[in-house]
């Protein structure tokens, strides 16, 4: 179809859909806010901790592993994004593109292997 001509107007429906969804979300939130009963109490509005008194709060440090996973995700996702334009033009680029990308994927695998060896993704 119109693969090479991208019109900004094609994106207007996305905005319309966002407005429809936003309208629904806001209406429902206002409805539930006005219709529901309100009987607040100190104990009820306290943080839930399976019935025992609350100890500390949740704004405490958590495992560094989650940060590692997030950083590795950013790295690999950028690499994945590099591959999309190549994949779209794969047939036109031919053998040259294929070997170029295999080299890139090889480097990516070396990185992945390094991560495995450093035990960055091992959960104890």
């Amino acid at each position: 179809m119109n693969e090479n001509t991208s019109h900004l107007s094609e994106y207007v429906p996305i905005v319309i859909m966002a407005l429809v969804a936003l309208g629904f979300v806001v209406t429902t939130m206002i409805l539930t806010h006005t219709l529901g009963p309100k009987r607040p109490s100190k104990v009820k509005d306290d943080t839930f901790e399976c019935g025992i008194p609350v100890i500390g709060n949740a704004r405490s440090p958590f495992s560094i592993k989650y940060f590692l996973v997030a950083i590795l995700f950013v790295l690999f996702d950028v690499e994945v994004i590099f591959m999309y334009p190549w994949a779209v033009n794969f047939k036109e680029l031919g053998a040259f593109g294929l070997w170029e990308m295999f080299t890139f994927m090889g480097l990516m695998l070396v990185g992945l292997f390094y991560i495995f060896r450093r035990k960055a993704l091992d959960w104890e």
Binding site: M29, T32, H33, L35, G36, D45, D46
Partner: peptide, 19 residues
């Protein structure tokens, strides 16, 4: 039922982000 239930916002939460 969901719409008519009581809406609770815990005291220690960040109100706006919670919603």
């Amino acid at each position: 039922k969901m719409i008519f239930k009581e809406e609770m916002i815990p005291t220690h939460s960040n109100r706006w982000l919670f919603v």
